[in-house]
């Protein structure tokens, strides 16, 4: 068992079709309001110049939206932050398109979609849009993606002694791949993790890596659960339920088949 020194959650962001910002999501998680009926198809990434914006797929749009909102909430300049981007599947719609086109008409692959198909596309668009020269990481860890991304971001913040932006997202699966890697809707979340006690109130986050026989992740139980339950990133919700609750909370995320991440929020 390994416990990391605490980090501070300086800013939080959340986006899904019916919960398009953290304030709305937090109120719904707490049961203070019902989710809006209106569903927003995708956020508009104002960060990007028109040329990048018109090429940005949904995965990039949601990643940039939550990244910007988390930096705003933290009062941090996005250009100065190292960043970790995590996604279970990347852009499955593009992966399906590439597979189907390669099988049928391989000479007719869209260069734009090929350009957008890589797992670090969102991170690349982010660094273009923010003009950030800070390092970024793009990772995937199957169903354990959110916990591994959180651990990576906290580890980087602690080792560098600098705040780190953590962005996680997953989108709708399409075509044949949807039968193997199902995911519904568009979901993006972000936090800025800092190592110094911020001037404004923040939550203190303590992470412990613990070997186990079988991970027992905390289940989502808020009214927001049904809105994200079928997205591949749904395992992130218990963490945001804990953030929405101002009282100290503990929860478990999975890191692997025999490894769990014990999360304390004070």
């Amino acid at each position: 068992m390994t416990q990391l020194p605490p980090v501070h959650v300086e800013g939080v962001a959340f986006w899904t079709a019916q919960l398009p910002d953290w304030q709305t999501a937090r109120a719904v998680i707490r049961g203070e309001s019902l989710p809006p009926q209106a569903r927003i198809a995708r956020p508009t990434p104002a960060l990007l110049a028109p040329t990048e914006r018109r090429r940005a797929p949904d995965t990039v749009a949601v990643a940039l939206e939550v990244g910007m909102r988390a930096c705003e909430a933290a009062g941090q300049d996005p250009a100065m932050l190292a960043a970790v981007f995590a996604s279970t599947h990347g852009d499955l719609a593009i992966s399906d398109y590439l597979c189907a086109t390669l099988a049928a008409t391989p000479a007719l692959i869209s260069p734009t979609r090929f350009h957008n198909s890589v797992h670090n596309a969102a991170a690349g668009y982010w660094s273009i849009g923010t003009k950030a020269h800070a390092p970024y990481t793009a990772l995937s860890a199957s169903v354990h993606t959110f916990g591994n991304g959180l651990l990576e971001a906290a580890t980087q913040a602690l080792s560098a002694g600098q705040p780190v932006l953590y962005v996680a997202f997953d989108a709708e699966a399409r075509g044949a791949l949807a039968s193997m890697a199902p995911s519904r809707g568009l979901l993006g979340v972000a936090v800025v993790l800092g190592v110094e006690t911020p001037a404004k109130p923040s939550r203190r986050l303590t992470l412990t890596v613990a070997p186990c026989d079988t991970p027992r992740p905390t289940s989502a139980r808020s009214p927001a659960a049904s809105l994200v339950a079928h997205n591949a990133l749904a395992p992130c919700l218990p963490f945001f339920e804990a953030l929405a609750d101002p009282s100290p909370r503990a929860l478990v995320l999975t890191l692997g088949e025999q490894l769990e991440l014990q999360v304390g929020l004070q």
Binding site: L108, I109, S110, P111, T112, H115
Partner: peptide
């Protein structure tokens, strides 16, 4: 240039 390739396609 990416637009040129996309347009050609």
């Amino acid at each position: 240039s990416i637009d040129a390739l996309e347009l050609a396609l």
